[in-house]
Design a protein around this nucleic acid. Structure first.
Length: 576
RNA sequence: GCGCUCGUAGCUCAAUUGGAUAGAGCAACGGAUUUCUAAUCCGUAGGUUACAGGUUCAAGUCCUGUCGGGCGUGCCA
C-alpha cells in the first residue's frame, strides 16, 4: 500500500543515520492540507535533538539520502522541518492499475501468514427476557464491524454471542410469571407480556423494604440448583425471547458462529471456585468468596454467601472454555464502558491463574443517552424500542424511494431498497462516532439520510451504477481495458489518491478497534466522488481514452465503497 | 470519600495517539439542474478546544490544580 511503500523508502534513508528507524515510521502520514503535498514526514524535528542539529538541517540530510524520485517530485522542506511529498501521477496510475486488477482485495495487501491470529469476538450479548432498546445496538453493530474488518485484514475470527440467559432477570421473570401473568396476553404476544411482567417485578424490587426482591433471588437460586419447575419455565420462556432477538439480527444480517450463553457454563462454575480457592488465588470473605488484588480494596466476588455464583465466575469459566476449545490469540469483549472495573478484575484474575499468552481487550463504548442527556433506563416506560426504531427507519426510507418514480423499481425492490437504506442509516449513525464517547440519542439523527450518513455512500454507489446502466457498460470487459489512466483534472487526482488509501483506513480502524476511522474514510471517498461526478463527464468525456479512464475510476470507487460498507455491515443498492 | 471518564462552532460529533492556519454534518444565509440521479455540489457565517498554570521546536491531545457532567465503587449483569 501507498503508505507502506513511502515508509520503506524513509527507513532505508534513515538506516545508518539513526538506530531503529522503524520506530519513526509513524511520523510519515498523509498531509492534512493539499497545499502541503500528498504526504508528509514529520521526523526531522524529533530527530534534531537526538543528532544535536537544526531540524531543517536534519530534514535536508534526510532528503539527500532519500531515493524516492520514481515515486514523487523532489521533496520540499517547509516550516520547522516538515518534509512534504507530492506523488507522481505515474506512480498513482501504477497503483490504481494494481487495485483494479485485484478483484478481492482492491489493492489492500493481505497480512503476512506469520502475523495471522485467531480472534474471538464476544459481542451483542443481550439479556434474554429483557426488552431490547436502542442502547443494545452499539455492541452488536461495533462487534460486527470489527469482526468483518479483522477477517478482511486476514485474521481468523470466531464470533460468540454470550447471552445473558441465566441471571437474576430470570428470577424476576419466573416470579412474575407465577404472580402477575395475564394468560390471555401471554398467548397473544408472549414476548410483550413477559417484558411487561419483567418491568412490573423490576419496579417492585426497586421499592425499599420489600419481600419480592428476596423471592426473586430465591427463584434464581432454585433455577441454578436445578429445580425442575423453574427449569421447565426457563425452557418454556427462552425460545420466545430468542425468536425476538433473532428477528432483530436478521434485519441487520448478522449471525454468530456460536451462541453460548451464561447457562452453558453453569455446571463449570463450582469447579472454578474450588480451583481458585485451592490455588490460593481466591479466599473467603464474609461468607462469600472473592479474588483480591494488590493495592485495591474491592475484590471480584465469585461466590455469594448463599452459594450462588456471579458473572465474574461465569466469565472466568467462559475464558477457560474458550482457551481449551478455540485456542484464540485474543479475546475481544465489546461491552459498555460501565463494566470497565469488572473487566480489569477479570483480566487480572486470568493473569493470576498463570494464563499469559492471550490478548484480552475490553472494547468499551459509551452510553447512549436519551434526549434529556440522561442514560436510557429500561425501567422507565419511555425507552425507544429497537424494533420500532428499525421500522421507522425503513418507513422513512420507503417514503423517499416511492416518491422517486424515475427509478422504476417493483414493489418488492422498493421494500428491499428501503430496508437497506433504513438499516444502514442506523448502523452508520452508531459506527461513525468514536465508540468511547457517550452520545445523545436523537431519532432524527439516527434516521438522517443527508450529509455524513450511510445514505450518502449508498447514493454515490448508485450513481456509479447508473452511469454503467446508461452507458451500457460491461464491467468485466471494462476491467480488461489496458488504456492508460489519466489524472489531469484535480478532481480525478483527488479521487485517485483517496482510492489508494483504503487499506490505510482499515489499518487505522483496527489499531484501536475504532470503526469511525473507516466511516470517515468512506465519507471522504464518497465526497471526492461527488465532486468528480459534478466536474468530470464520464460517458460524454472528450475522447474514448478519457472515457475509459474515468469509467475505471468509477468502477474502482464503487467497489471500494461497497467493500467498505460491507465491512461495516451496511449493504448497497443499485438504484435509489 | 475514592477510582475511572468526559468537557471542542447554536446542535450532534471528528481530529491518524504530540505536528503546520482545530475539521465535518445538521440548523442559518446565498448560489448551481435543457448536460451520466439535487438523498448532490459550490460559497458565507459560526472557535480564547471549560478555566488557570506547567512540560517542549510544537499541546484539543501529556502533567498539576480548579469548576462542571457522567459512570463505577464485595454478594445484579
Amino acid at each position: 500500500m501507498i503508505l507502506d511503500i513511502l515508509k520503506d523508502r524513509f527507513i532505508l534513508a534513515l538506516t545508518g543515520l539513526i538506530d531503529n528507524p522503524e520506530s519513526y515510521s509513524d511520523l510519515i502520514r498523509p498531509s492534512q492540507d493539499a497545499k502541503f503535498g500528498d504526504f508528509q514526514a514529520n521526523l526531522a524535528m524529533p530527530l534534531a535533538k537526538k543528532l544535536s542539529k537544526q531540524p531543517r538541517e536534519v530534514a535536508a540530510e534526510i532528503v539527500a539520502r532519500l531515493k524516492i524520485d520514481d515515486l514523487c517530485q523532489p521533496p520540499e522542506i517547509a516550516g520547522p522541518g516538515f518534509i512534504n511529498l507530492r506523488l507522481r501521477n505515474e506512480f498513482l496510475v501504477d497503483l490504481l492499475r494494481k487495485a483494479i486488477d485485484d478483484e478481492n482485495r482492491l489493492g489492500v495487501t493481505v497480512i503476512e501468514p506469520s502475523k495471522r491470529k485467531t480472534y474471538l469476538v464476544d459481542y451483542s450479548g443481550p439479556n434474554v427476557a429483557k426488552p431490547m432498546h436502542v442502547g443494545h445496538v452499539r455492541s452488536t453493530v461495533i462487534g460486527n464491524a470489527i469482526t468483518r474488518m479483522l477477517q478482511f485484514w486476514g485474521h481468523h475470527v470466531i464470533t460468540d454471542n454470550h447471552l445473558g440467559d441465566w441471571g437474576t432477570q430470570f428470577g424476576m421473570i419466573i416470579y412474575g410469571y407465577r404472580n402477575f401473568l395475564d394468560r390471555e396476553s401471554y398467548q397473544k404476544n408472549p414476548v410483550e407480556e413477559l417484558s411487561r411482567v419483567y418491568r412490573v417485578v423490576r419496579q417492585k424490587t426497586d421499592e425499599p423494604d420489600n419481600e419480592i426482591a428476596a423471592a426473586v433471588l430465591a427463584e434464581t437460586a432454585k433455577l441454578h440448583a436445578g429445580n425442575a419447575d423453574n427449569l421447565k419455565l426457563w425452557n418454556e420462556v427462552l425460545p420466545y425471547s430468542m425468536d425476538e432477538i433473532n428477528r432483530i439480527y436478521q434485519r441487520f444480517h448478522i449471525s454468530f458462529d456460536y451462541t453460548l450463553g451464561e447457562s452453558f457454563y453453569h455446571n463449570m462454575l463450582g469447579n472454578i471456585v474450588d480451583d481458585l480457592l485451592k490455588r490460593g488465588i481466591a479466599r473467603e470473605t464474609d461468607g462469600a468468596v472473592g479474588v483480591f488484588f494488590d493495592g485495591e480494596e474491592v475484590p471480584m466476588l465469585i461466590r455469594k454467601k448463599d452459594g450462588a455464583f456471579l458473572y465474574g465466575t461465569t466469565d472466568l469459566a467462559t475464558i477457560c472454555y474458550r482457551m481449551e476449545t478455540f485456542k484464540p490469540d485474543a479475546i475481544l469483549y465489546v461491552v459498555d464502558f460501565r463494566q470497565s472495573l469488572h473487566f480489569e478484575h477479570l483480566f487480572k484474575t486470568v493473569r493470576l491463574m498463570g494464563i499469559e499468552n492471550i490478548e484480552l481487550t475490553h472494547i468499551k463504548f459509551g452510553t447512549v443517552l436519551s434526549e434529556d442527556g440522561k442514560p436510557f433506563k429500561t425501567r422507565s416506560g419511555d425507552t425507544v424500542g429497537l424494533n420500532g426504531l428499525l421500522n421507522e427507519a425503513e418507513k422513512r426510507a420507503l417514503e423517499i424511494v416511492q416518491s422517486n418514480d424515475k427509478l422504476g423499481l417493483s414493489q418488492s425492490e422498493q421494500l428491499e431498497t428501503a430496508r437497506r437504506i433504513g438499516i444502514g442509516a442506523i448502523v452508520y449513525a452508531d459506527l461513525s462516532q468514536n465508540r468511547e464517547s457517550d452520545y445523545v440519542f436523537s431519532y432524527d439523527k439516527m434516521l438522517a439520510m443527508n450529509g455524513n450518513t450511510a445514505t450518502y455512500m449508498q447514493y454515490a454507489f448508485a450513481r456509479v451504477r447508473s452511469i454503467f446502466v446508461k452507458g451500457n457498460i460491461d464491467i468485466k470487459e471494462l476491467r480488461t481495458k489496458t488504456e492508460k489512466l489519466m489524472l489531469t483534472e484535480p478532481a480525478e487526482r483527488a479521487l485517485a489518491l483517496e482510492l489508494l488509501r483504503f487499506g490505510e483506513a482499515i489499518e487505522l480502524a483496527l489499531r484501536d478497534y475504532r470503526p469511525n476511522f473507516l466511516t470517515a474514510y468512506l465519507f471522504e471517498l464518497a465526497n471526492r466522488y461527488s465532486v468528480f461526478f459534478e466536474q468530470c463527464p464520464v460517458l460524454k468525456a472528450a475522447n474514448d481514452d478519457l472515457k475509459i479512464s474515468r469509467l475505471l475510476l468509477c468502477d474502482l470507487t464503487a467497489r471500494i465503497l461497497q467493500k467498505g460498507l460491507e465491512l461495516l455491515g451496511i449493504e448497497t443498492v443499485e438504484k435509489m
